[in-house]
Each structure stands twice: as C-alpha cells, then as structure tokens.
Design a protein around this nucleic acid. Sequence first.
RNA 1: GGUGGGGUGUCCGAGUGGUUGAAGGAGACGGUCUUGAAAACCGUUAUACCAGAAAUGGUAUCGUGAGUUCGAAUCUCACCCCCACCGCCA
Length: 431
Amino acid sequence: MEHMVDAKLLRENPEKIKEGIAKKKADPALVDDFLRADEEWRKATAELEAIRVAQKKASAERNIEEGKRLKGEEKILEEKVGVAEVARNSSWIKIPNPPFDWVIKGDSDADNKVLREVGEKPKFDFKPKDYVEIAESLGLIDTERAAKVSGSRFAYLKGDLVRLEFALGQFLFETVSSSETLAKIAKDAGLEVSDKTFIPVLPPVLIKKEAMAGMGYMERGGDEIYRLEKDDMYLVGTSEQSIGPMHSGEILDAKELPLRYVGFSTCFRREAGSYGKDTKGILRVHQFNKFEMFSFIEPEKSEAEHKFLLAIEEYLMKELGIPYHVLDICGADLGDPAAAKWDIEAWLPGQKGGEGEYRETHSTSNTTDFQARRLNIKYKSADGAKFIHMLNGTAFSERPLIAIIENFQTAEGKIKIPKILQKYLGKEEVG
RNA sequence: GGUGGGGUGUCCGAGUGGUUGAAGGAGACGGUCUUGAAAACCGUUAUACCAGAAAUGGUAUCGUGAGUUCGAAUCUCACCCCCACCGCCA
C-alpha cells in the first residue's frame, strides 16, 4: 500500500496529472497538496538519514556516549518524518488513476458516447412486457417473499431462470476455455493478442480490508461496500475485488502472462444513494451472481487486452442474439482505478411501458498499474521487475437474464430460449 | 474455540545482541570446456526510497507494528498469517 499514482510522474509532470484527474471530477489541488507534503517529507528524510549515518558510525566505534546523544536526535526526526509521511499519503492516496488522453472529458454519464449499435431489435406484433411481469407470472422471480426474508432489493430466482443462469455459465466457460474460439474472437476484432485461455476461479467473497483498499474502491464510493463490523471483513461487490489481490506482493514470471481468470461469485452492494431507482425486480439488487473476466498483463499490451475483453463481451452478446450498444465512458463517469472503460448496454424492449431502453449489462476497465501499485504486483521484465497492468470485464451478471426474458418473450407470455443455450436446458422455450 | 509449532532472499535452509544484506544448497543468467548437449569448473544473481546528468553514494527492509539497547534477524509486547492435533461443521 505504498504506491499510488507514480510519485515521479507527479513531481515531473503535475499539470498533466491535474488535467487528467480533473476529467474525473477529482480536485486537482490534491496534486499540489501532495507536492507540498512530498517536499517536506524529502527534506525530513534527508535529515534523518544524515543522523543515521553518524549514529551507525558511533555505534561501530562503540562510542556509547555519542550514540546516546544521536539516538535522541534520531527519535525527534523519526517523528517528523512520520508526520510528513502521513500528510503526504493522505493526499496521495486520494489521487485517482488519470484517464488515457483519448478518454472524452464529459460532465456526467450523459456524455458517454455510443460507439456502435449491434444486433436487431426484436419486432413484436404485441406490446412487449416488462421482464418482471413475465417472470412473476411464470414463477421465475419472487421478490415479495425475498422482502419478507431479507428486505427490499433481494430476490429469489427460481426454476428455469436458475437453469438459464447456469447455462450462461456453461456457455461462457466453453467460450473462454477454448483457445480456438478466443483466437477467432481476436481475429474478428482485428486484435493481435494471446489466445491463452481463462482460468476459472471461485474466489472468496469475504475479504480483508487491505485487499479491498488495494483495489482502490474505498477512497471514493466506500458507501457501496458491505462491511462486517465485528470481523472487519468486507463483502465483495464484484469478484474482481477478490481476484485482483490474489497475487498481491508477488512478482509474476513474464512467461505466465497474460494471466487470465474468469471468476464466478455472488456480489454484494449496498446501493446507497439509489433510493427509489429501479426498485422492482432484479435489475438493481443487494445481492447477485456474476461471472467476471480478469487479466494481468504487460503494460504495453494492456490496451489491446482491454479491447479483447470488450470483444469477448460482444461475442457473448452476439451469440445470444441480444441487441446492444457499446458506450465509451467519459472521464466524469470513470471509477478511481480505471484509466478507460467501456460499457455494453443491452436493449430491453419491455422497459418504459414497451418503448424499450438500453441498460448496462457489461463493463470493462483498464486500471493500468493503479491497482498493481497498491497491491504491489509486478512481473519480471527484461529490465527488472515492473508493475503489471490489471484489467477486468464483466462476462455475465444476472442482468442478461432480464435481456433474454424481454427480447425473447412471446405473445403468450412465454420465453424462447436463445439457440445457443437450448442444449443446456434441453428445450426451446420457458413457460 | 482449545493446545502446540512456525513465519528469513526466486525456492529450500542456517543463523539467539556487534562488518549479517544476511552462511550453505537449489534454481536462473553469463563464461570456460565440448562437434552439440549434459556433467564439471569460474563468475553473476533482492527490493524500495532519497541525492546525483551519470558514475556512484546513502537509508530502509529477515510476517506487520511498537518497544528495550550505543547497536536487533537475534531480546520484550501486540497483531496478522501458516501448519499440526483436539472440538465443531457443509
């Protein structure tokens, strides 16, 4: 936890960092605060080290009297360095990862840019229903009983919806466990990336404070996290938070890169500040399951890897036949750790009384070395150990189930099962 | 939850107050030898930070933090983690 944004970069090019973090709506004054505190820290450190040199000498010469005297001075300076360090860290740790230059600035999520629309929106000769209505009538979602047991924003998923969720998992694992499929996805996207398969992981969902802090989600947005007071443990909001710290303190061998994982875990989110928003159904709940892709890779390859994760996400959606569009996320809408982010929003024809709207189902971020610095994860490169780059991307959450229900609904209120998933359920229709 | 043992460099492993950044071994890298390879032999092989254009110099680091001491991997305390046995348990 000693590294945030590179201190050298901050000292050498503070204006550039300021400009970058301003894109994210973070206060550029943080950089000045850091530089001021840093100056003080360096001065105090130099003084302390000078005393230590004398102190070592006295000790080697068995000059006990001199040693005693220097020891007193050393104590005072140590104190000073400690204070300076705290001041330095408090501004340092709040400086978010500056976005890439090409990331659009923007003021809010309204400024995210649609990069492309993919797939055909289904045409219905009836008014498409909201997924909640369909799912409830088919006994697939029960939020009422969940409220009785757990409160609002919880749900029981039941029957074929559960089988559908596991089918998504099966389909995903087949996709990312095949280097042929991965190579094809890369080729179609025009990317030169490794076809190395993803290692499936079932990670712990209860993690320590250091792990959570290392992923960089506690400075801003900490309200979103469930914490177990008695044990000082944290419930993950995504398996990313558990997979990232897996290699903390390690130096990875370049030969094993890229290191790709596909995790599955339950995710817990407090949804603080979203009162009254999306209160029905399972679109926004405190607990859901999610398959997540995660990559550790060399810095020079991370931008291609980011595109690759997006390409995989798009492949999954295309194979399912769910229409979607891709959003280029603007600076103002980026989380602290991300230098760039793309979202996929699926078309939900049953929303807004049958008008339909796009809602987020996927998100992929390149956190560059931001998380790696905090977690101290490096790799052996030709010129020594360097911080690695870390990326994450949604594979499937439960939101695609919503998209399936709404896009594949029939006039009779049933749900056609996407072709690619039919073999897992052994039938073509739910209901 | 109880009892006992333990955390040292890429890995294994020595080291209970004074050139110990740390013996020894393995691995890796470079070289000699060899037609090539292996073996053998020789050498190199931590990280971070600070100062410096650089060469280089300095400081810190033996689970983490605090303490004792002129001086700590070595002593004290707290915490974390791991292992074994017992208890409990899907």
